[in-house]
Each structure stands twice: as structure tokens, then as C-alpha cells.
């Protein structure tokens, strides 16, 4: 027999992620898919659509909304979820602030990024979710490289990186005590490049801010921030128009743009292939300290 039974890397990653999503549906009572409208969560949503086809994904989608969004992302979010026939839950950071559950940061670099953790954990508890599926990848950041597919969270939503369950072969252990939950990461083994290639291959729509466009930005500590309604200008800062695109779509106050003329998926892929900065290189939230991500994750961040 000379036939070679082999599948290529994107198919292998897709197959693995679909396996994880089906395992999530089978092993948990009330899983939810976290959906921000960013490219990684879009890929997760697409994989969920495939995993359970022709049935609808047996879990709702939830957006933890900082209120500091790019409007393009929100329009996209609503349309995308409607198109795949999903159910959308919006958990709002503004509500957490209004209820006194979270306190807004002060100063010109104030961001609601960290406050999302409060809203997320409250929403998980309120809705009695026992698994929250996210689009985080191990290649994004060094603390994430230690993350499991099925990642345990204690009753306070905390991650204990030094005491994680080993994951072997295709076997995942989702057992937990009352009040605990899991984070599930089907894209663990994907890289930024894999995500873009998959979006291209599958012709998946993405928000327009990923493509090159003209935008008024402020340069702060080497990061280009959108000069939108949520940004407070510091002394001496001046907004200027640049041709940019975004590599991630987080909170508008801390997500940096990159100067780019890539206006198609093909050009973005070329750009990613020759990029000399990681995609999170433009995220002011990660630059706060060397273990900024680890600290946030331990508290229960995505």
C-alpha cells in the first residue's frame, strides 16, 4: 500500500480544536464560548460551528464588554453571531463599575482591561457556567505557554500555574468541585500565522480594523493608540493621521495599531511572516511589567 495517510498542519490543528470543543460539550454541564469579535474568538466560533454541524453549537457566546470598544468590532460581533445562529450574552464592565464591584483606574493610562476579570468571574458565577472557552494561544505570551487545554480555576477563579493537571494523549480531565470552573483553549497549539491562514482558507469574515486604513492616532511610549473618545491626551501629545491596522482588537485604550498598508488577508499574512514584533508587542497592558500577564491570569483573566 503506497498511499500516505497524512493531513497537513492546518487540518491537524482544526481536527484537534474540534476534538476539544466536542469534549467540552460532553464533559461540562454549562459551557460558554467567550467571544470578543477578535480574530481568535472568531476562529473558535467557526470551529464550534463545524464541530456540531448540522446542529447549532450547544453553548452560548459571551462578550465581556469593557465599553471601550472599536465600534467596528461591536457591529461585527452582532452580525457574526446572528449569522451562525448563536445566542449572545453581553457582560458589561460598566455594570460592574456602577454596582461598585470594580473601580475605574485613574490617570492618562487608565484602562478597563484588568477590570474585565471582575465582570468575567461575576458573569460565570451568575450564569452558573462551568467552562469558559477562549481563543488564547500558547504562542501569544510566555505565561500562556504554560497553559493547558483544560485549565482548572478554583472557586475564586484563580489559576495556579505551578499545580496544573498533566494532559496526556487525547485524554482530558474536567472533574471539579462545586463552584470551580475551567477555562478551555482549543487554539492552544495555533500560532498567529496559523490563525490568519485558517481565516484565509475558510474565508471567514473579520472586523474591518484588522485591515489597513487611515486613522487618527496618538504615539505614546512607542505604541500607536486610537485617538477615540476613551483616550485622555497627555500634555504635549498630538493626534496625527497615519495609515494603520490593528493586530489585536482589545480595549481601545490599550490596544496599539501598527503602521501598515496591508489591506487584504494575503497581505496581512505576508506582513505576519516578515514581522519582527509579536502581535502583543503593541499592547500597553503587557508592558506594565515582565509578569503582567501571569499576574492577571492568576487572578482569573482570560
Amino acid at each position: 500500500m503506497s498511499v500516505s495517510y497524512k493531513i497537513r498542519h492546518l487540518e491537524q490543528l482544526e481536527s484537534e480544536a474540534i476534538f476539544i470543543l466536542r469534549e467540552t460539550a460532553a464533559q461540562f454541564e454549562r459551557p460558554v464560548i467567550l467571544f470578543s469579535g477578535g480574530k481568535d474568538s472568531i476562529v473558535v466560533a467557526r470551529l464550534a460551528q463545524k464541530a456540531f454541524w448540522p446542529a447549532r453549537p450547544p453553548m452560548p457566546f459571551m462578550h465581556v464588554d469593557t465599553g471601550h470598544n472599536f465600534k467596528e468590532t461591536i457591529e461585527f460581533r452582532d452580525q457574526f453571531i446572528e449569522d451562525i445562529g448563536g445566542e449572545l450574552i453581553v457582560a458589561s464592565v460598566q455594570d460592574s463599575i456602577d454596582q461598585g464591584r470594580a473601580v475605574e483606574e485613574k490617570g492618562p493610562n487608565a484602562s478597563r482591561n484588568a477590570l474585565q476579570t471582575v465582570t468575567l468571574l461575576d458573569a460565570i458565577e451568575e450564569n452558573r457556567f462551568d467552562a469558559a472557552v477562549g481563543g488564547a494561544r500558547r504562542d501569544e505570551e510566555k505565561a500562556r505557554a504554560k497553559e493547558r487545554f483544560f485549565s482548572h480555576r478554583d472557586e475564586f477563579g484563580q489559576w495556579d500555574p505551578k499545580n496544573q493537571r498533566p494532559e496526556l494523549w487525547n485524554l482530558f480531565n474536567a472533574r471539579k468541585s462545586q463552584g470551580e470552573h475551567f477555562r478551555v483553549f482549543p487554539l492552544s497549539n495555533w500560532t498567529e500565522m496559523d490563525v490568519w491562514q485558517y481565516i484565509l482558507r475558510e474565508e471567514i469574515p473579520i472586523p474591518s480594523i484588522y485591515f489597513s486604513h487611515e486613522r487618527e492616532v496618538i504615539e505614546r511610549d512607542g505604541v500607536l493608540l486610537d485617538n477615540g473618545e476613551f483616550l485622555t491626551l497627555m500634555e504635549g501629545e498630538k493626534a496625527e493621521k497615519r495609515i494603520v491596522r490593528f493586530r489585536t482588537v482589545g480595549d481601545a485604550t490599550c490596544t496599539g495599531a501598527v503602521e501598515s498598508t496591508a489591506d487584504s488577508l494575503e497581505k496581512i499574512i505576508e506582513e505576519v511572516a516578515s514581522a519582527r514584533q509579536t502581535e502583543r508587542g503593541g499592547r500597553a497592558d503587557d508592558k506594565r511589567s515582565e509578569s503582567a500577564m501571569e499576574d492577571r491570569k492568576k487572578e482569573g483573566y482570560f
Binding site: R8, H9, Q12, E266
Partner: peptide, 13 residues
Amino acid sequence: MSTDDGYMDMDLL
């Protein structure tokens, strides 16, 4: 597909 097939279609080790 118009992009470099080398990237689209690779072996995984």
C-alpha cells in the same frame, strides 16, 4: 490560493 502555498500546506512535527 494566491498566497505562498509553502505556508498554507505544511507538515507538522
